[in-house]
Design a binder for these strands. Structure first.
Lengths: 337, 337
DNA sequence: ATGAAAGCGCTAACAG
DNA sequence: CTGTTAGCGCTTTCAT
């Protein structure tokens, strides 16, 4: 037997009244007599009646559900975003359907289709790395599904979006090293074809120039993983080139460099200060603890969801798109004191 | 205007045929002529028709959606579980609605209610730390919602469940230290009122006893966080008590101990070997890398989902409940070589 | 080979 | 104050 769940009809039959009366009584409609309300609510409680959200969705053409398209849940940043989304959605009485693209274009297209079929009221999207054709997003928009992009946006697609100011964060991180007296600051950069890689490097360069420091190409090295950092720092140290600071494009890179530096007997932060860019919960458990940029994933999730809910519940369909840029602020820890 | 999405009726009107014919054509029913099928499919594609899953759910009394109740998404273990769930569900054509309890009883009860209202076809549950009253789960069961518990189960409630053999994992971890020649092995334990804390300690004790080693109460210390570990290990070292191995109830504890030990100039693993219990992605980035138990979150998610889908799709309602116990195997790294 | 009608559970005019 | 009716989008007998 499928789902022996109680329906409004069951209550109606039992009480020998009509389904509509039951419906009204349940939502405390002013027309209904106190006596009837009491009886209905009592029986509903007794039989543990649960309204059928599916029927409601069909009726109202409104599912009170939002969809999320997310590259990979297991990354700390993304799971924090989800957490933020969940909390806001929950408070507003919305459900959340999560679809992972696993960074695959095909899967992302399927996700969009699924969410459309589920008639979600709106979708939060962070675009997969692989995606170059964006027609599935245009398709959603053509179907009047409100869309908010977070973190990874679609270039050229006007939409609500919330992103982090990577450029400014990198600028401030580098600036922090300069302010604390470092003059020769290296940068371990991400791939320059990726926006975040480029922006972080540009922020670094801006800070140097502004302070009147040379931009030394020998100190800018493309390395964006734990392993690559170990090799790169080794090579750099072997050149004999002097440097007293390092800004790494992410925490794992910073940590890989830090360990290797320490193995050489070089003191951190005394001889070399290090700053990372947060992508996990690593910064607190290194020795020394790692100064790093906080990406505010949770906050990004809450803000994106608020924007989406506003879009969903707004009467006026056509107010202009918003772009929110979050500050990613620097958390100073032991590695740069 | 809400949702200008194309319906079957729209197609029918356009083609001057009935909705039922369209419906049948779309699912390639043998009764329908090739010509009609072609016309219908062509128009459907042209207008970008997407079947309304909500209407389907109502009709079939089957939502093709499963619910997840999870304590906190941001923990690496739980996000890996979700990832496993998502992948299996996706392949089977099921959607996933995620509800976080945030370790709160009240919220967990609300989650159960929400999922019931959404008419999910089944629910995967990991119980919140706070929960002591389990009636909301009995309620789900009374409503014939298939339930599978993963990782954190309800004592005494017979149900499908998949858990990790913490006892055996701890036994093997300790055994590994013994096999590599350590004779005086300390244990940093979790709270003994929590099942996992107790099981891990018991496994440790079993290994010692089996090897004919003394169980030295002075070497068993309740400490289950990074900070507590630092304090506890300091104290332990100060007593002058000799030990050459440490099994910690989780990775952060192991890492806190490791750092403090190293600061004293004691070599790891030469003088003291360390084994942790995985709860993050930390083990690869410490120096030395940390030997740890892998909890297989992803696998737990896939298995739990398979069990649930089997329950949902099974004709025969009443086959006995299953309990799957996953091996949590030891990954040997630098800290115990 | 196709259509008409009923119904999944609920709500909201409209009618008394 | 309550009941009747229609309809949300779809499937599925039952006719034809």
């Amino acid at each position: 037997m499928k789902s022996g769940l109680i329906t409004i009809k069951d209550l109606a039959r039992e009480l020998k009244i009509s389904a509509s009366t039951v419906s009204r009584a349940l939502k405390d409609h002013p027309d209904i007599s106190a006596e009837t309300k009491r009886a209905v609510n009592e029986l509903a409680k007794k039989l543990n009646y649960q309204p059928n959200a599916v029927a409601l969705s069909l009726k109202q053409r409104r599912s009170n559900t939002i969809g999320i398209i997310i590259p990979e849940i297991v990354h700390y940043f993304f799971s924090s975003v989800i957490s933020g989304i969940e909390d806001v959605a929950y408070d507003a009485g919305f459900n959340v359907i999560i679809c992972q693209s696993n960074e695959k274009y095909e899967r992302e297209v399927a996700n969009a289709k699924t969410l459309l079929a589920s008639r979600v009221d709106g979708i939060l999207v962070s675009v997969s790395k692989e995606t170059e054709d964006f027609s599935h997003f245009y398709n959603l928009r053509n179907n009047n599904i409100p869309l908010v992009f977070y973190d990874r946006i679609v270039p050229g697609l006007e939409a609500d979006q919330v992103i982090i100011d990577d450029f400014d964060a990198a600028y401030r991180a580098t600036r922090h090293l300069i302010d604390s007296g470092r003059q020769h600051i290296a940068h371990f950069a991400g791939p320059q074809k990726l926006l975040i890689g480029k922006q972080r490097k540009d922020g670094y360069i801006k800070a140097l120039k502004e302070a009147g420091l040379d931009v030394d190409e020998d100190l800018i090295i493309e390395a964006d993983s734990f392993e690559k950092a170990r090799l790169a720092i080794m090579k750099l140290l072997n050149t004999g080139k002097k440097f007293d600071g390092l800004f790494a494009t992410n925490d794992l890179t910073a940590i890989g460099a830090m360990q290797t530096i320490q193995k050489r007997g070089i003191k951190i932060p005394d001889e070399i200060a290090i700053v990372g860019f947060s992508d996990g919960r690593f910064s607190g458990i290194t020795d020394p603890t790692l100064t790093s940029v906080d990406q505010h994933g949770y906050e990004m999730g809450t803000i994106a969801t608020e924007m989406l809910l506003k879009r969903i519940t707004s009467e006026d369909d056509e107010y202009p798109f918003e772009t929110k840029v979050l500050d990613a602020n620097l958390i100073v820890r032991g590695s740069s004191l």
